[in-house]
Design a protein around this nucleic acid. Structure first.
Lengths: 335, 335
DNA sequence: CTGAAAGCGCTAACAC
DNA sequence: GTGTTAGCGCTTTCAG
């Protein structure tokens, strides 16, 4: 199944076959058709490796790195990226980092070995990964970050305005009269979680909303952590009037805990969440939240990468996406 | 950044560099170390294309084809596959078919061009795709199907026992005393949907459960379809006592319709669903359902493929996975 | 232990 | 129009 074999079988030269199959001029229509038909008949598909190797050009492949496909947020981003890439004829390797710097670097090396044209990544924020991305970038590899980025690296990125989102939520509960706040946080390694938590604490302080240390729970960005954290908060004798949950999977767990303990929302406890996923609308009552736009994030990341590859101008290096407050019925009006 | 460049810089022969870097014997330790250090210093990563081209061996890459990453079921399968592949050092191209035969065939061709070692696919069931897979398989490509398969093709597959799952659900509602049943079905192209629907209809008939034609709704496998279908059923003056929903995304939509219309489950209407995803547990009341095992499906698909690639024996060609009935509180007891 | 030469499958530049 | 030649980056003989 190679151009050489076809050439031999048809008694012509390999270069003629190459020209015929790749639509280049310089072959008579008769011969071209004969070659194309024969190639189809024997089920020939050109070897992309050999072709890209010889052309010294692009491979038409990209690498995408995400921490977790199980998270609907990332699944949605990937879906949007896929859409753009397909319409531009790119294939991509999907790499899962599990937030593990070693695993991420392993994948990066392998992507480089496969000579991908570019990399779209939600990077694990760690010194090792930072150094590696930095090296790659200075050796002219095309990289676009989404969801997270390294503040000290000048690599294009598409990130949600997390501070804005948190402030919108806290403003809302403030207006509803809440003065005590609990928080279900994320993995301590998550920069996203760190930013959201810090913004929440600072802004709550500014508005004189009390956050007792024992009201801050969460050890991880998983459903399990959300579940256990919410249970811990609910079992305290002095509870906050409202709990802020910092992402989608943890809020799923928190909601499960609430269902299980049959806590009444918003009468006994109010709830607000970062991220608007599937379940926020069908919970009883529907959850007030701040919505990121993972679809837009994916589209922008992919388009930016492609623009850079095509040497087109990229308008902004760092894109900050707005969040949207969606008011539902999970916050009790106290005033 | 090539072996030749390293060889030139160090004044040795490319073949020596190759031996040194790939851990082959026949290089003095001193020279080997010198070469390895130099390679690291200049950030050299071997060209996987050139290497696999020359070795005439495997590329270490696979292709995965799914209809939709937005669907949590497939996201979970992918996650499991990724886990197995990573531990066996395989990279993979992720391809999304959108249930479009043309798109799927386009992706298949591109996977072949990239000379993937094997393909794991939840195929779109269509004559065109069937013929294409059939051709690929007879030309010795390694393929494993999951979630769906072509009954007339002898290609290994890992599929859920859909009939069993539906029967478990219908048995349950029968025991609870229900005599009238509505169904929210899937896309007419979905073989999974077809099997589930037919089994439900036949088995209901057998148990003398009535299914009026206007109680069968659904035009698609999406959230939207589930939402609109449930609304249609709820608005009828003569309604079934229980509604069976045939997958996860449609049940999400159905639950949204129920929340919106404030229908009381299970007092006004009972619910059972195929698939146990995130939201079944946090809905009020929690949804009785039958659970597939997407994780197991992914693990088996990946392991089977790897076994075949390693010429190990595959125990069973067609694996049928059991379903599990999870009884919660969405079905009213009528007797 | 190291070097030389050949070739994986393909394409681009150059002949005729 | 078609053939010839060279070489992308790598590995694998075979020499020395």
């Amino acid at each position: 199944m190679s151009i050489t074999k076809i050439a031999k079988d048809l008694g012509v030269h390999p270069s003629t076959v190459s020209r015929a199959l790749s639509g280049k001029p310089g072959v008579s229509e008769d011969l071209r058709n004969k070659i194309i038909q024969y190639a189809e008949k024997i089920g020939y598909y050109p070897d992309a490796r050999a072709s890209s190797l010889r052309k010294k050009g692009k491979t038409g492949t990209l690498g995408i790195i995400i921490p977790d496909i199980g998270n609907p947020f990332f699944a949605t981003v990937i879906k949007a990226i896929e859409d753009v890439l397909y319409s531009h004829n790119y294939n991509f390797f999907l790499c899962v980092s599990d937030e593990d710097p070693e695993k991420e670097i392993f994948h990066l090396k392998s992507l480089i070995s496969h000579r991908v044209d570019g990399i779209i990544a939600a990077p694990t924020l760690d010194n090792k990964t930072k150094n590696f991305y930095s090296k790659l970038y200075s050796s002219k590899k095309t990289i676009v970050f989404f969801d997270r980025f390294f503040p000290t690296l000048d690599i294009p990125s598409i990130v949600t305005n997390n501070e804005q989102g948190i402030k919108k939520l806290i403003n809302h509960i403030y207006k509803m009269g809440h003065k005590t706040l609990g928080i279900i946080s994320l993995s301590p390694e998550s920069i996203t979680g760190k930013i959201r938590l810090e913004t929440a604490l600072n802004y709550a302080k500014k508005l004189k909303i009390t956050v007792q240390p024992e009201w801050i729970q969460g050890f991880d960005s998983t459903e399990e952590s959300g579940y256990l954290s919410m249970k811990k908060i609910l079992k305290q004798k002095r509870r906050p009037s409202v709990v802020l949950i910092l992402n989608d999977l943890t809020s799923l767990g928190a909601l499960r805990a609430i269902s299980e303990l049959k806590a009444n929302v918003p009468e006994e406890i109010s709830l607000v969440a970062f991220d608007d996923t599937y379940w926020n609308q069908i919970f009883n009552p529907p959850i007030t939240c701040v919505k990121q736009d993972p679809k837009e994030m994916g589209i922008l990341a992919a388009k930016n990468l492609i623009n850079i590859l095509n040497k087109k101008n990229v308008l902004k290096k760092q894109i900050l996406l707005d969040t949207k407050l969606i008011i539902r019925q999970s916050v009790k009006k106290l005033i």
